[in-house]
């Protein structure tokens, strides 16, 4: 293989003239992290609402939840990204469309919202699974004490359901973080985007993507360790202490 290795490339100025390639990679990492955090926050909130809706004893609420899930998890993420970014501003009324197009950092917000909705559909299924794993008697017990149905969800069902599905939430958060790379398709300058720009400008493809690989791994390891402490905090004494018992 006739490849000219040059690990010093990271310290050379990038095309913007002021920052080194290393700095641009870290900026990319920053955008990746920001997109992941904002996107997953949306997914967590929206997914919880939809997951609850899917278990609600009201027909039309259940149906709307189901439609949301099937729409947003069955269209490829890349296509959704294009729909949000290129198609949505065109189909909206003219003023709203213009407002969207001129929005500062439009790529970032679009990618975050798009990821938010996509992962909300998947989070909804996770939350629903958690709720369905509880016995029917828990809901009855809450209601028998005079709690309203929303109060029963808020104080009885969801706190236990979330604790049960923490591991699944962790893996959704990880895949949401990895999926931020799809943002490159609408011009979001996140980590994959900066690595690719570096490769195109320097032809140092191995160095560029080696850096991206390491940075993605590092970011997701941070998430894994952060979620591990959430898992520990979520253990219910006397109930399923598998995690605590692993002896870390």
């Amino acid at each position: 293989m006739n490849y000219h290795w040059n690990w010093w490339i990271f310290f050379e100025p990038s095309l913007d003239g002021t920052n080194t390639y290393l700095t641009t990679l870290f900026w990319g990492l920053g955008w990746t992290a920001a997109t992941a955090v904002v996107g997953f926050t949306i997914a967590l909130v929206l997914g919880s609402v939809v997951g609850v809706a899917r278990t609600a004893p009201i027909g039309w609420v259940q149906t709307s939840g189901m439609v949301f899930v099937e729409v947003f998890r069955n269209i490829p993420l890349l296509v959704q990204m294009f729909l949000w970014y290129f198609v949505l501003p065109e189909v909206l009324p003219r003023d709203a469309g213009m407002w969207l197009k001129q929005f500062p950092n439009a790529q970032f917000y679009t990618a975050a919202v798009c990821l938010g909705f996509y992962h909300a559909a998947r989070m909804a299924e996770v939350v629903r699974a958690g709720l369905l794993s509880l016995s029917r008697g828990q809901k009855m017990a809450g209601q028998a004490l005079g709690l309203t149905l929303p109060q029963t969800y808020r104080y009885v069902l969801l706190p236990v359901a979330y604790r049960i599905v923490v591991p699944a939430i962790t893996s959704e958060f990880l895949s949401c973080t990895k999926n931020t790379s799809v943002g490159i398709a609408i011009g979001l300058v996140e980590l994959t985007g900066t690595a690719r720009a570096m490769q195109e400008n320097t032809f140092q493809v191995f160095e560029a993507f080696a850096a991206a690989t390491v940075l993605y791994l590092a970011l997701n390891m941070v998430i894994v360790f952060a979620m591990r402490s959430v898992e520990k905090a979520a253990v219910i004494p006397g109930l399923g202490n598998r995690i605590a018992g692993r002896g870390r």
Partner: peptide, 26 residues
């Protein structure tokens, strides 16, 4: 329902709350 107490076959205490909190919640 808040005026009629009910006790279930499988207890149905709230597993994430300690005993005091179980009694206080409602």
């Amino acid at each position: 329902r808040s005026r009629v107490g009910m006790v279930f076959q499988h207890f149905e205490l709230f597993p994430h709350l300690n005993i005091r909190e179980n009694l206080a919640l409602a």
